[in-house]
Simulated scan of single mutants.
Amino acid sequence: MSYYANHTFRCMTPKALVEQATSPAIQRFIVDGYGPVSVSGIPKIGRIVLAHGAGAGHLSDFMRQFAATLSSQGLQVWAIDFPYMQQMNEQGKRRPPPPVKKTVAHFANWYDLIAPLDKSPLWVGGKSMGGRVASLFASERRCGGVVAAGYPFHPPKKPESLRTEHLSAIVDPTLILQGERDPFGTRAEVLSYGLPSSIRLQWLTDGDHDFKPRRASGINQQVLIDEAAIVAASFVRAHQAVAAGTLCTRV
C-alpha cells in the first residue's frame, strides 16, 4: 500500500472538491494533476493554503498540530505536499527540493484551484521553506495575507545569504512566527534587518526552528506551536475585520 493510501487519502478530481470540502472533519485527497492535500476546519474567518518545510511533509507532527490549532480557531486549512515530497514519501528516500521558482509555481496552481471554492479570503503560509514559498507568491500576487512559521531568513551558519529582498514587495498583511533561537534567523539577527513595518514579528520564547525550547525554559514545543497558531488566527481575524469595516464604509 502506498504512503498516501495508508494515510486514508482518496483520489479526487479538481471539480469534485466543490462538494467535498465542506466538512469540519479532516479530509485527505489526492487531487488529479495537483497532488496530496489535507483539508480541515470550516472557514469562519478565512482559509489558508499551508505548505511544508524542506525536509518533512504536511503530515509531520509540527504541521499536523499547527493545522489542527488553526482550524480550531476558525480557519479552514488546506495543507499540501509538493511533488518532490510526494516522491520522498512514496519511495522512502530523501530528495532535495527543486529550484524555488518551480515550487512557487506549483503553490500558485493550488491557490488558483482553491480560491474559487469559497467566498472567504484565502491566505497563504507555511513552515520554513513553505513560508518562504508563500511569501514569494505573495510578493508577486495579491492574496488574503501571509503567515510564515519559522521563516528561513538565511541558511544556518550563513548569515550573509539573506532571503529577505522580496519581502518589501508584499502588499498584504504578513505575520512571521519565529523562535528566538532559530538558527535560520535569531531574534538579534532579524531585528537588525530593518524589515518593512507592514511585517509583524511574533517571537516564540526560547524556541528553535521547530519552536522547541530548552528544558530549562519551563515550557514545551507543543505549547509554543499552539501559541503560534492562536496568534496567527487572531492576526487573520483582526485583518478580516478591518477589511470588512473598510468595505462597509465604502458602500
Rank of each mutant, 00 (worst) to 15 (best):
G145I: 03
V146D: 00
V147W: 00
A148E: 14
A149W: 08
Y151N: 09
P156L: 05
K157D: 12
K158C: 09
P159F: 06
P159S: 04
E160F: 15
E160P: 02
S161I: 11
S161D: 14
S161A: 15
L162P: 00
R163Y: 03
T164H: 01
E165G: 10
E165D: 15
E165R: 12
H166L: 11
H166I: 07
H166A: 12
L167T: 08
L167N: 13
A169W: 09
I170L: 07
D172K: 09
P173C: 05
P173H: 03
T174E: 10
Q178Y: 06
G179C: 10
G179D: 07
E180M: 08
R181S: 08
R181T: 09
P183W: 10
T186K: 06
T186H: 05
T186R: 09
E189H: 09
L191G: 14
L195C: 08
P196F: 05
P196D: 07
S197K: 15
I199V: 13
R200D: 12
L201P: 01
G207I: 01
H209G: 14
K212G: 01
P213L: 04
P213H: 05
R215C: 02
R215K: 10
S217I: 05
G218P: 11
I219P: 00
N220Y: 13
Q221E: 10
Q222G: 07
